[in-house]
Amino acid sequence: MEVRTIKVFTTVDNINLHTQVVDMSMTYGQQFGPTYLDGADVTKIKPHNSHEGKTFYVLPNDDTLRVEAFEYYHTTDPSFLGRYMSALNHTKKWKYPQVNGLTSIKWADNNCYLATALLTLQQIELKFNPPALQDAYYRARAGEAANFCALILAYCNKTVGELGDVRETMSYLFQHANLDSCKRVLNVVCKTCGQQQTTLKGVEAVMYMGTLSYEQFKKGVQIPCTCGKQATKYLVQQESPFVMMSAPPAQYELKHGTFTCASEYTGNYQCGHYKHITSKETLYCIDGALLTKSSEYKGPITDVFYKENSYTTTIK
């Protein structure tokens, strides 16, 4: 009895394709271990004539594949690729409408935090270190965002349907971005203890939790000093293409032309909904596939993004 075979390709990165001759009487799992086709788990399936010449994702289970996976995804987590594939199996079914010149995501599976993050990423200057993220990001900007969303979920250790947080998501993504040249110098002034300067680099240099107003941050924000008295913390120097200011959701007025974009969060910790506000020729609110415009805006804002380049204080 002759062994019926077909020729397929296996890959971990969709760049390096490895030619395989597979036995049609055995499952993919018996031949390769966990195997995925377009995100779908085909591990328990036997090869079919229609699979001839198709590319299958496999887990990096030998040295060659491990090197290829690390170079593309910059992670050695053995569960990463499987999590990416199972997320992709959902995100490829989502709709990605162009809204006001940006790629958004039609609401499904509690994905409003991903839509808000995706919209924000198209408006701030950011370059990702893992080629996987950078490639998928370019495709997302062009309207094909399924891979990018699935990668975000995998890097953030999230599953489809789980509630997510924009600030946490951005923080994970910033860790995989090139923020080497970003720098922030802060000064804390206390009447009792004097003053202390701190220099922050990388992710810490672009994120701040405690106030939404970048102007206020430049002037000074009140913080408790270690001595128990009130101290003032203010920005001395900022070198970065953008800054992200966050605070627990509270009524906040966004003035046209003073910011790049913002995240609105309605609801409580267990259950809520994100919308995205962007400042173009007027203010726009993007909620999944829905767009509304207004000249002014007041609502429960939790993150505001500002364009920056270089700032030095005039406070002496």
Rank of each mutant, 00 (worst) to 15 (best):
F174A: 06
D287N: 00
V203M: 12
K54S: 12
Q123F: 01
D41N: 10
G220F: 03
T292K: 15
S295Q: 15
D13T: 06
I315W: 15
Y155V: 01
F242S: 02
G272P: 04
N147A: 10
C182N: 03
V188G: 11
G143A: 03
L126T: 01
F70V: 10
Y274F: 08
Y36F: 11
E144W: 05
T232E: 05
T313E: 08
K201G: 09
S263M: 09
M26R: 13
A250M: 12
T313Y: 15
T266K: 00
Q98R: 14
D165G: 11
A150Y: 00
I301Y: 01
T302V: 13
L186E: 12
Q98F: 15
C182W: 03
P78I: 08
T27H: 10
V206F: 03
G202I: 01
P249I: 04
V160I: 08
G164D: 01
Q238I: 03
F9G: 05
V203C: 10
G299F: 05
Q197V: 10
N178T: 03
F174R: 04
H51V: 03
K218V: 06
Q30G: 13
E144I: 00
S25E: 10
C227I: 03
N89L: 10
L290H: 15
M170T: 03
G299C: 06
V67E: 11
E162Q: 13
N268F: 03
F217M: 07
T198L: 14
L212F: 07
P224D: 12
K229Q: 14
T192H: 07
L291C: 14
D135L: 09
F32I: 14
A205I: 00
C190A: 05
W107R: 00
G143S: 03
S86V: 11
A117G: 09
E239T: 10
L235T: 03
T76W: 09
M207R: 07
A140R: 03
E253K: 11
T91V: 08
A150R: 03
Y284L: 14
Q251W: 12
G53Y: 10
D13K: 09
C285S: 09
H18A: 07
A87P: 07
C193G: 05
K298F: 14
L59H: 12
V243W: 02
K106Y: 09
A132K: 11
Q251D: 12
A205P: 05
H276C: 14
K92A: 09
R184H: 03
E125S: 08
F305S: 00
Y84F: 13
G272R: 00
Q98S: 12
